[in-house]
Amino acid sequence: MIRRILSTAALEFRIALRNRWVAIATCLMVVFALVLAAAGAAPTGDIGADRLSITVASLTSLAVYLVPLLALLMSFDAVAGEVERGTLPLLLTYPVARAEVLAGKLVAHMAILALAVGAGYGAAALAAVWTDPASTAGLPALWRLMWSSTLLGATFLGAGYALSSIARRPSGAAGLAVGLWLGLVVLYDLGLLALIVADGGGGFTTEVLPVALLANPADAFRLFNLSAADATAAAAGVGGAAATIPLWQSALSVLVWPLAALGLAIAAFRKVTP
């Protein structure tokens, strides 16, 4: 089983390398991270935190948007592309389980995301330490951001595979992926904010909001990193809610979502008849 998964992963990584996905993802993360590192340099003196911790807070906000987008871009084609190219029927006559095929793709795509995230955050960290040697205090927060970003990516990779299986055509899968990104990453928070304003500190804000935040993998990721890094003060908006939700709850959401998404993807892929 492991051998079949690793062989699939190696093949997918090679394809991504040749399609320049590795280069695109890495460049994007490095450029954005360096821009944030430069922009985040200004308010250091006022807050009294080291420079890297400030950068981590900014990077968290960046990752919430960029990592799911990269993950969906890499995954929407995973099943629909095989259907369209006509490669799926032959693959499914091999003694390989559908779950193994998806696991192989997931390993490869997660490796690419980890590479991109590592390069991007690493560059930002170097820039921070360069100008402020005290920044080494923020390294644990940076490490946490790295692995939790990869897990956030895994969640959206799984969601992308599921959409790819449901749509069965790359164009349809791309549309669904964009819809999911807009819904979970952009509109979800806007909706929550609107409800908070309307509620005026009532039952919704104290009872429903924490659950709603934990139920969304992107929000849970943001809560986890902000509350763990004690950088809440540097973040605005929904981050303020981090204080009321225990760390273990957001950590659990960050850990469980990738598994749930992979389970959904496998269930959807099993329904595909070539």
Partner: peptide
């Protein structure tokens, strides 16, 4: 072909 060989053990 290397991949297919691996899938068949």
């Amino acid at each position: 072909i290397r991949h297919y060989l691996s899938l068949r053990g």
